[in-house]
Design a protein around this nucleic acid. Structure first.
Lengths: 235, 235
DNA sequence: CCCAATTTGTTCGTATGTATC
DNA sequence: AGATACATACGAACAAATTGG
């Protein structure tokens, strides 16, 4: 396939992000294909997020560093036909997030800690409507994604961002925020406060055990809501 | 973009894997675009692994369930510009693999256990050439990918398959198998034997602690090799 | 503000390849 | 073998976007 050939050529040339590929005319000549075929090939590379094209003078096709969001979207379509359960997702969260918390204890700048506190401030007051409840639920998940982004491990950051985003989608899609479960929810917020204190104090063990407890609470909360939804649907 | 429109239409229709999309002619009519543009769109969907096309009568474009390997390849290109270190990869492995081992203890059929033993048999005898060492290294990683596939958690399976494959690539690319480090390597094999016994016995705690120890050994092995490589290159 | 040059984007007509009946 | 139904490929013309004078 032509796209593969172009991709191989680009890697062989050692092109970096931002570098320009030859224009359509030159690619046609170099690979001996018609314009339409070359265009299909560049579209394929674009769909894979490897390249981006602009028209106009100075335009063309450029090597592009895939955004985390694009990678997440591509991976999502892999799981489109594979149904992930809450238990599946939380098995991964329970294993990874305590590890992240422990590794970041004492390593965060004051502005980073402040950023996390700002997110928490978004759900200090109890939600009164289902709408508010949904927003707070999402914000609380973004707390975890933000924390993961502060890790200098890009693999770990990506996985946790992916997992929390998937959980957000599930929450909204299946309305897992309604009805509100205030008791467990408040307990979850307490854990996040404890976690922040441990991170600031540089107490790695406390951060880990707090996160473990938080994950258990969150999973219990979500699974209770899920059971509730099923009940509502079947009765 | 047309590809997005088609994708949305497919999801709206609730088409499942194997279902046929309208032919080019009908797509042209339905989306009001020319042949070439429609073709580019289907190529984009094909590149994302959502669709596959066949020529001939009864051919056409079909909804397709993305293969794990395709998903892995797409995700790999995300990390192409982001350099993953051994420490990054092992931070994830150390957190996830013991969890997998614990959750599978006592749950595997005899034929699954046999499959794992067969893989181990491939590196019973010590390697004598660098070539053999490389093959054994890869086989030992496939032991972990195979174990992960036995989990009924598709998210966990995918992540571990991705991580072990990335590690294989790194190993080959940076020749981390040469020179052989027999002492640590033998120790790693012992752990895998212990692990199999724990899995067969259904001892979940033993499986977990064995895997933890194995991960530590493996990371130490790999990092020692990495240091060795750097030394050879700089001296 | 408009014009001209450059480069991708789209269309149409036609021809070829490929698999099924 | 031949007809049919479909994707694949080519080429030439035209459209749209962007930049610089």
């Amino acid at each position: 396939m032509v796209a593969e050939a172009i991709k191989a050529w680009v890697m062989e040339q050692g092109l970096k992000s931002g570098d320009r590929l030859p224009g359509e005319a030159e690619l046609i000549e170099r690979f001996g294909m018609s314009k339409g075929t070359i265009r299909e090939a560049t579209r394929i590379l674009e769909a894979q997020g490897l390249v981006r094209t602009r028209s106009g003078p100075g335009g063309g096709t450029f090597v592009h560093e895939m955004s985390p969001d694009r990678a997440r979207a591509l991976l999502s379509s892999y799981f489109y036909f594979r149904d992930l359960s809450l238990a599946d997702i939380y098995q991964v969260r329970r294993a990874l997030e305590p590890e992240v918390a422990a590794s970041l204890a004492g390593k965060l700048s004051e502005s980073q800690l402040q950023q996390l506190e700002d997110i928490m401030a978004g759900y200090n007051a109890p939600a009164r409507t289902a709408e508010e409840e949904r927003e707070q639920h999402i914000a609380s998940l973004s707390f975890h994604a933000t924390l993961a982004e502060m890790s200098d491990n890009p693999l770990l950051s990506f996985i946790i961002a992916f997992v929390t985003r998937t959980l957000s989608d599930l929450t909204v899609y299946r309305k897992l925020y309604d009805p509100p479960n205030h008791a467990l929810w408040a307990e979850g917020k307490t854990y996040q406060g404890d976690l922040l204190r441990a991170l600031r104090a540089g107490d790695s063990d406390a951060a880990r055990t707090t996160m473990v407890a938080h994950m258990q609470t969150a999973q219990a909360l979500m699974e209770a809501q899920e059971a509730e939804v099923v009940l509502r649907l079947t009765v």
